[in-house]
């Protein structure tokens, strides 16, 4: 009887499917029973011998058996696939706490960082950034800044003199001269850069350090403008409101000349070792541009006036990061440099 045969095959196959333990075994059963040359196909081949009525009945039974077996198979196949995926994922456990291979992030020199920060600040205030050479003419470094030969101010700046008759600039102020000639009035410029003083090096003295020169020339620039500007600028640099004061200071290229002090940021002016108990920290020299300097820069001092200042970038870096040995800045030691 073909019906009996079918139901026995279906029951036996269901039992075998239930018993498999691997996806491969399942596949073997599928090929054996449901494949093109499988047992169900053989049964359907024999259907030709049946009467049309019987064929209809058996056909239905056959389809039902096939469908039922396929469903069971698919269910089990899915289960095996899901288990396999789960097993793969589990095998792919990864420790993401180990360091990534390849180089880490490098760091910029702290002077580069502070210089960029201050440049951006000045650019936003309408200042042009200029460059000047490290080797300067005696004229630009001294004479054009109202420091003629034998002026005692030349003693204040120990100069490296060079075999070619020139010198290593002792300040960024020569860029004032270059800037006036290049830009003409009115002008706003800054010039950051490396400067040199011929002195012995120790923890607080360097022969090579960084300054930022600033200059503004316009009609009727006054001391009151200078104070406003310095206060605004220094508040931005120190990221807090700072109190500044001007006191007389002597620099031949400005008249009047000032030393600008800021109220000590450590003790807020009450006195501490950092400010030597004075409440004030000397920060930068500044002043109104001397008429002789304007004249040598091709600007008429009767028509224009200006202010200039020199900010010590090296000093600022040391203050910001509390660096106690200035030599570190040009020591090339990565243990130091990678901290910034």
């Amino acid at each position: 009887m073909i019906e009996t045969l079918l139901s026995d095959l279906a029951a036996a196959t269901q039992a075998r499917i239930a018993a498999v333990t691997t996806a491969d075994e399942l596949e073997t059963i599928r090929v054996e029973v449901l494949g093109r040359k499988g047992k169900l196909a053989e049964v359907s081949k024999d259907m030709g011998k049946l009467s049309p009525e019987q064929r209809g009945v058996v056909g239905k039974l056959l389809n039902a058996a096939k469908q039922s077996l396929e469903e069971t198979l698919t269910t089990r196949q899915n289960a095996f696939a899901a288990a396999a995926l789960a097993a793969r994922l589990e095998r792919e456990w990864l420790d993401l706490t180990v360091p990534a291979p390849g180089p880490g992030l490098g760091s910029l020199h702290p002077l580069t960082q502070i210089q960029a920060e201050i440049e951006d600040l000045f650019v936003s205030l309408g200042f042009t950034v200029l460059d000047g050479p490290e080797v300067e003419t005696e004229f630009n470094n001294f004479d054009a800044l109202n420091i003629p030969p034998d002026h005692p101010a030349r003693d204040m700046q120990d100069t490296f003199w060079l075999s070619n008759g020139h010198l290593l600039r002792t300040h960024t102020s020569p860029v004032q001269v270059r800037g006036m000639k290049k830009l003409g009035p009115p002008l706003r410029m800054i010039a950051p850069g490396r400067v040199f003083r011929n002195e012995e090096v120790d923890a607080s003295h360097e022969h090579t350090f960084y300054q930022l020169e600033g200059m503004m020339v316009d009609k009727d620039v006054s001391v009151a403008h200078l104070i406003y500007f310095m206060k605004t600028l220094l508040s931005a640099i120190f990221k807090r409101d700072v109190t500044v004061r001007l006191r007389p200071g002597y620099f031949p290229f400005v008249e009047p000349g000032f030393e600008l002090d800021i109220q000590c940021l450590i003790c807020n002016g009450t006195g501490c070792p950092v400010c030597k108990h004075s409440g004030w920290v000397e920060l930068l020299p500044c002043g109104l541009v001397h008429p002789n300097v304007l004249r040598l820069g091709g600007i008429d001092p009767e028509e224009y006036s200006g202010f200039a200042f020199g900010l010590g970038l090296t000093r600022l870096v040391m203050m910001r990061y509390a660096i106690d040995d200035i030599r570190q800045l040009q020591g090339g030691d990565l243990r130091f440099l990678t901290q910034f």
Binding site: S124, M216, V223, H225, I227
Partner: peptide
């Protein structure tokens, strides 16, 4: 200036056109 005392000057914003030059 020094005898008046620079602290007795009122800081004054400069009156200049507000242009931002390009970074060279």
């Amino acid at each position: 200036g020094r005898m008046i005392g620079y602290g007795n000057l009122t800081p004054l914003p400069p009156l200049v056109p507000n242009t931002v030059p390009p970074l060279p």
